[in-house]
């Protein structure tokens, strides 16, 4: 009988601990989510992120797929600050639509990665200059648009970096626009060096 009472006592201690842990976790999540509701990011009608619907493959597979549908892939050969390629996201291997992810930590998450490179097919540069700080120029003979204040529409990005803005360079090579997004600590000169180092993937 004493043994049973003892067991029952343990159950209630364990139960109480579980309640405290789960409840406080839930409450903290609730509070953080409630704060996010104050963010302008959550006020709009937001379609699901395209690559949420996609799948991840290796850079080599992406290159092979692009070659099969008649596109050459250029990749940076010089990356800043221990960044390494992780995965390429796509919604279809039959299209030249990819987001390549580079990360310090091996993350595959395109919303929060330090550097990403997106491919958008177009035979002209898809950005235009609208602010004095925007730059239209050429690098390696390729058309380039760059700005330091491009809005990023992911809550996760804003949470990680404390800002909704990123550095952006778009470079057109042939019929593909390569759209780079760099987190705030990567300098524009480092990002320019990334673009300068782009080479045909072999």
């Amino acid at each position: 009988m004493t043994k049973l009472m003892g067991l029952r006592g343990y159950w209630w201690i364990i139960s109480a601990l579980l309640v405290i842990i789960i409840s406080s976790t839930g409450f903290l999540l609730y509070l953080s989510n409630d704060l996010e509701q104050e963010s302008p990011l959550s006020e709009g009608y937001t379609p699901p992120s395209l690559m949420d619907l996609g799948f991840a493959i290796s850079f080599d597979e992406a290159k092979t797929n692009l070659n099969k549908i008649g596109f050459n892939l250029y990749l940076p050969s010089n990356l800043p600050d221990n960044l390494t390629p992780t995965v390429a996201w796509t919604t279809s291997t039959q299209r030249a639509s990819y987001v390549f992810v580079f990360s310090k930590s091996g993350s595959r998450n395109l919303e929060t990665a330090e550097l990403i490179m997106e491919l958008i097919p177009s035979s002209s540069l898809i950005f235009y200059r609208e602010k004095e700080t925007d730059i239209l120029t050429e690098i390696n003979g390729w058309e380039v648009f760059m700005c330091e204040d491009a809005y990023v529409g992911f809550k996760e990005y804003a949470t990680k970096y404390g800002t909704q803005y990123a550095k952006l360079i778009c470079v057109r090579i042939g019929s593909l626009n390569y759209l780079f997004r760099a987190e705030p600590s990567i300098t524009m000169n480092e990002l320019i060096d990334v673009v300068k180092s782009m080479k045909l993937a072999s």
Binding site: S15, I22, S23, T25, G26, E36, P48, T91
Partner: peptide, 27 residues
Amino acid sequence: IILLSMTFISPVIVFANYHTGYYYGHA
């Protein structure tokens, strides 16, 4: 415990937006 925990966690689930429909996969 489970029921009590759900009371606290459910607001988190409620705030996520729900989608259904098509995307084209082509532009």
